[in-house]
Nucleic acid binder design. Structure first.
Lengths: 185, 185
DNA sequence: GGACCTATTTATAATTG
DNA sequence: TCAATTATAAATAGGTC
């Protein structure tokens, strides 16, 4: 009855929203929209998704695909305990990860660990290969083709900063999707 | 006139699509949908976005936010050349990144480098701090609180694998958005 | 920051080319 | 893998609480 919704949305113009408050509100709404879409993409197509969304000058939000343990099992082997033949640091992280996510069910979203999730399956893959990569000083001496060299170099640096970020920011704001609602964990 | 569009979409059920072909088609469409949404989020709210989308058993697709040089400038300083006072490895990567993206205009999307983009601004931040992080063996001896320890540890491992991935996959498929169309670069 | 609200804009399932 | 199509399902701007 009131005039609450007199001003209904117009066609959006793809441009930066100048009004700061509107920009924040839109960020929040659309961030959730993106996460929801990714949720659907993951569930419907079985894809893996890792996303970081960072509003200007604030802490990042992130979203990782679900069923982390399933992903681990997919790569490490179903219900197989850590291999005694390679009880190195790799297994240590697998266990840490399992523990960190043990409270999650397969059918629920696990959005703790966030963007780490995608990257983890690559870690497991590496574990299968049962070898480690020298990424430190030696990285830049390897026989890598030009473009990869650039990318990998930047990535390496980024990695270090991401680590620093985790350190500095403390716990990042991960989001869980449950019962149709997104909520910070 | 034909029966081409007799079967119009029904309400989607949030479940894995069993038919393999439909699943692929849906993946492609929704991947583009997600990227488009992220594009809008970036442009409208000024946020930064980095995303990796990986269909089962295939190479990953990725999306990074635009205006990379602007982001660099934001952190390093407008139009400021690399600081002579700290001509270390940091500047080297900033320059590499600038060069890699020099062909991009501010108003166009730069989706080369992909997920590296987000991480880069953290790198620049680190540069500002003018110090480096010891992440190798020493990382695990640092005074990090429990949860961060776990996260950072996994992240470190995961990113090492991401490095490996970049190495193995060669050039990842980055996507550019232009004139309303997404296209591989 | 989130929960609602409504009218309108967008995304998109199923299909053919 | 991408383009086009159309009717419908979803997302969302602007607002209040």
């Amino acid at each position: 009855m009131s005039t609450r919704w007199i001003m209904v949305r117009k066609s959006i113009r793809l441009a930066k929203i100048e009004n700061q408050n509107n920009r924040l509100v839109t960020f929040l709404k659309r961030r959730n929209g993106v996460f929801k879409k990714e949720n659907e993409l993951v569930v419907m197509t079985g894809a893996e998704v890792g996303t970081i969304v960072c509003p200007q000058g604030s802490k990042p939000y992130s979203f990782g695909h679900p069923n982390v343990n399933e992903t681990i099992n997919k790569y490490v082997g179903e219900e197989r305990p850590p291999s005694p033949s390679s009880p190195g640091i790799d297994d240590k992280y697998v266990q840490m990860f399992r523990k960190a996510n043990s409270r999650e069910l397969n059918t629920r979203f696990n959005s703790r660990q966030d963007q780490l999730v995608f990257v983890l399956n690559l870690k497991i893959k590496l574990k299968q290969m049962n070898k480690k990569v020298e990424i430190h000083q030696e990285w830049f001496k390897g026989p890598i083709e030009k473009i990869n060299y650039t990318e990998a170099s930047i990535l390496k640096e980024g990695l270090e900063d991401l680590l620093l970020k985790v350190k500095n920011y403390g716990t990042e704001r991960g989001y869980g999707y449950e019962n149709g609602k997104w909520k910070a964990e």
